[in-house]
Amino acid sequence: MPLIAAIDGVTTATLMDVSSVLTLPYRSILFREGDVAEHLFCVLNGYIRLYRLSKDGREADVRICGPGDTFNECLIFGADHYHYNAQAAESCTLARFELSHLRTMIEKEPQVAKAILKSLSRSLLSTMDSMANDRLQTAPQRVANYLIAQCPGGATSYSLRLPFQKSVLAGKLGLAPEALSRAFSSLRDAGVIVRGRIVQIKDIVALKRI
């Protein structure tokens, strides 16, 4: 947990005193937009999907959080309601920290304040990168870059099992599910073969040319 790694042992022990561990089954709702904001969360394993709903019920993913990721830091400094919905994209385990206790610790422990600000900075940079990619890259390029990022160091070909449903990957990449399917189809000539959640990449060099 980068949040914990940024503070010393004594402060970590204090932070652990105001935390608890929560296990969520697949597709269960952690909280809904508009609920009273009570906790900051860190994903220990599995994945959490953060999303918004339109008035007509359409969903738009905000972020997919994986192991080590924290979310709701933006609520520490004054917000009193959640700004999005949170759902388990896979069965997952979370560390849960009470926002009221964190606010008190921030006033007393500069290390905690710095750790929260670093976490906010990481989230902001990640969001800005995602926005830039959405504007600068085609759908096949977004998928190709995701697959390249999963490649083991030095490998020229590899196979992976997607860590979540393809519908979640689509949301993560800012694509509609049908756009993701078309993007995978367009990557066949670059040696990408998809069977369910198993993706085979036969030529990483060809993928990098996309």
Rank of each mutant, 00 (worst) to 15 (best):
M1W: 14
L3T: 01
I4D: 09
I4H: 15
D8F: 11
G9Y: 01
T11Y: 12
T14S: 10
T14K: 15
M16W: 09
M16T: 09
S19C: 08
S20H: 12
R27V: 06
R27S: 10
S28H: 10
S28T: 03
L30T: 07
D35G: 05
A37H: 09
E38K: 15
L44A: 07
R52H: 09
L53C: 03
K55D: 11
G57L: 04
R58E: 13
D61I: 12
G66C: 05
G68L: 04
G68R: 05
C74A: 15
N85F: 13
A88W: 02
A89K: 07
E90Q: 14
S91L: 03
C92S: 14
C92I: 07
R96P: 05
F97E: 06
L99E: 09
H101W: 11
L102T: 13
I106Y: 04
E107W: 07
P110Y: 12
Q111C: 10
Q111A: 14
Q111W: 09
V112Q: 06
D129V: 13
A132L: 09
N133P: 03
D134P: 00
Q137G: 01
T138S: 13
G153I: 15
G154N: 06
R161W: 02
R161N: 12
Q165F: 07
S167N: 08
V168I: 08
K172T: 04
R188G: 13
R188V: 01
D189T: 15
V192L: 06
V194H: 01
V194N: 06
V194W: 03
I204S: 10
R209F: 01
